[in-house]
Every structure is written in C-alpha cells, then in structure tokens.
C-alpha cells in the first residue's frame, strides 16, 4: 500500500507561525511524526509527505486542492493520512480538506483530531478521523491508532462501523440487512418506548432551532434598513482575508470600501461555493447597494443603513452562523436599524 502523509509547516519542520504562508511542497518518504507512523506501518509505505503552511492552505484552497489531487494521482496513493491535527483549528481544516480531496479521488483518508476541532464537523464525512488528545502530547496514541487502522486496511480487512473501529461517526448512511423486519423492529421499539426501556432510534434527527420571523415593519418609509449578505462581496484584493468557506468573521463595509460609488466597481467575490463570474462583474448582483440607495432616494424606505455586513456562509456551521447573527442583530439594534435584508447565494 502506498501512503501519502500530510503535515502543516510546524509538524513538517519548516517553521512556526512565521512559516504559515509556506506554499505546498512534496518531500519523498516520511518525516516528523511520519517517522513514528512509518515504523508502525506493516505492508504500507509513506511514499511522500506533503507539507503546506496553514494560512497558505486556507487562502489558496483552489490551488492546493488541485496540487493535492495531482500528487495523489502521481504517487498512485492507496491511502492518505492527514495530521493528526489535535485541536489546531487551521490545521484541522486543512487535514479535513485533504480528506475531502482524497475522498473525491476515491482514496481512503485517515486523520486524527480533538473532538472540538472545527475541521471535524465539516469534514468528518470524507474520512476516518480518530479522536486524539487536545494537543501533541497525545501524538504517540494518535499515531498508534492511525497506524493500526491503516494496517487493517492494508491487510484488506473489512472496515467496520464507527462504534467498532473508534473513528468519529462520519454521518454516512449505508444499507444493511437486519435480522428482523422493519415492522417487527417498529413494534419492538414501540413497546420499549412505552415501557420507558432503552431503545435506539435508527435515524438521529438533527435538532435545529426554529427561528421566529420578527413582526413586519409597519412603515418602511420611516425605517432604517440594513443590507446583509453571506455571499462574500469584499473590497478588491480581499484585504481582510475573508475566507472562501465558513468564514471566521463578518465584516462591515461601506461603498467607500468598494471604490466610493454605488456601482461597487472595486469589489470581488470571496465566496468559494458559487460561480463568481457574474458578481465579480458587478457586486450589486449579490449585494444590491444600488437598489437600496434608490429605494432611499424615492422615499420607499426611510434610510439605507450605510454599513453593509458581509460574511461567507459556504458550509458554515450552524452554531457559528447563529453567533454571527446575534452579533449583527445587536449592532443593528444599537444603531436604530429596524429592518434588514439578507441576500444569500
């Protein structure tokens, strides 16, 4: 079995935070934690180690994804191992993304992360990610677990479900045949539930908050109206480095940031989840500031609140989105805004 190992700049021994913009590079064989990993692998060889700076990875996703896919193909990899990343957020996101690239190439991906690593929830579907300690003190155990699992794959053994193997549940549904019919299982469950006995639902339903829409604005001609987008319209060059996916922040921009006119000439799309061609031509297609100022001019609305809130919602976790929403709402209320228009993509 041919293994490709992914490491960030720190574990790849390039440097610390100062080297976080190091572009992706390939080294032959194993290095860093890969040495210990290689020592425990049976019938599997780390043929190459890929190293990339955490910031470079996140900000050059398109380039890195293509490079990584090419490396997987050129080295004829059977398995990709990323990290372990412990609780390092950017590293976790990169390791997760590496799992996704491997998944898209049809290659098995293995990683290790601390349970709260933000990369876990977003990318767990794409690979077998094992739980680790919060930091590199847990390296020995993490490497042992990853090596054991990789060896199992190399032996051609069947991969069992998460409960048996220990990886984080990926959230993939797979058909199996049960011993009992659906009807019999339903009656079993009904009896257990009625008697207060334990039972296990076959589908765990995600629990979403119900958002109650606010009351309609009675008189728009007196209302101060805000414009918010999760479509990632940013000033040209993206000076605040708003991320293309699941942005780590939300920004306030005025037309001055976009060249000073309502044509938003100096804007571009930071969002990595849709075809940016049309909104790159004209930012108003996602962030319709021109329409808002026109509504203000004609008196249809009382005032257009000049600060526009911008983030990127692409694969945004619900909890983070809810936090941004609360922060934005608090600010709007402070500034006397009574109505907001949200545009999405």
């Amino acid at each position: 079995m041919r293994v490709i190992h992914y490491l960030n700049q720190f574990f790849g021994q390039v440097g610390g935070e100062d080297a976080a913009y190091t572009p992706l590079e390939v080294r032959q064989g194993s290095l860093g934690p890969g040495k210990a990993l290689q020592a425990q692998l049976e019938n599997a060889e780390i043929v190459a180690t890929v190293i990339c700076g955490d910031n470079y990875f996140v900000e050059n996703t398109d380039t890195v994804e293509k490079q990584m896919a090419d490396i997987i193909s050129n080295y004829q990899a059977d398995i990709v191992i990323a990290g372990p990343a412990f609780n390092a957020g950017r590293y976790g996101m990169a390791c997760g993304n590496v799992c996704k690239i491997a998944f898209d190439e049809g290659i098995i991906a293995i990683s290790g992360m601390y349970k709260e690593n933000p990369g876990l929830d977003i990318y767990k579907v794409y690979g077998y990610i094992f739980p680790t300690e919060i930091n590199a003190k847990g390296m020995k155990d993490a490497i042992a677990q990853i090596a054991k699992f990789a060896n199992k794959i190399a032996r051609g053994e069947e991969i069992l479900f998460s409960e048996d193997e220990g990886y984080f549940k990926r959230g993939i549904r797979k058909n199996i045949w049960k011993e009992k019919s659906g009807a019999e299982r339903a009656v079993d469950m009904a009896i257990a539930k009625a008697l207060g006995q334990p039972y296990k639902t076959e589908i765990v339903v995600p629990n979403f908050d119900r958002i109650v829409p606010s009351k309609p604005v009675l008189d728009l001609s007196r209302a101060k109206v805000a414009l918010i987008t999760s479509g990632g319209i940013v000033p040209k060059g993206n000076p605040d480095r708003l991320e293309a996916l699941s942005a780590s922040k939300w920004m306030e921009y005025t037309v001055d940031d976009f060249g000073g006119n309502y044509d938003l000439k100096e804007s571009e799309v930071a969002h990595g989840g849709y075809d940016p061609v049309y909104a790159n031509e004209d930012g108003n297609r996602v962030l319709p500031a021109d329409a808002m100022i026109e509504l203000e001019r004609t008196g249809y609305i009382g005032e257009f609140y000049r600060k526009m809130f911008v983030t990127v919602g692409n694969c945004m976790e619900v909890l983070k989105a809810a936090r941004y929403g609360k922060e934005m709402a608090a600010k709007l209320i402070d500034e006397g805004v009574s109505c907001a228009i949200l545009t999405s993509t």
Binding site: F161, W177, S181, G182, I203
Partner: peptide, 8 residues
C-alpha cells in the same frame, strides 16, 4: 422487508 440503513 429487512432492509435498514445505519449511520457510520
């Protein structure tokens, strides 16, 4: 039937 899906 006995078909079922499980999450892993």
């Amino acid at each position: 039937g006995k078909l079922c899906s499980i999450e892993y």
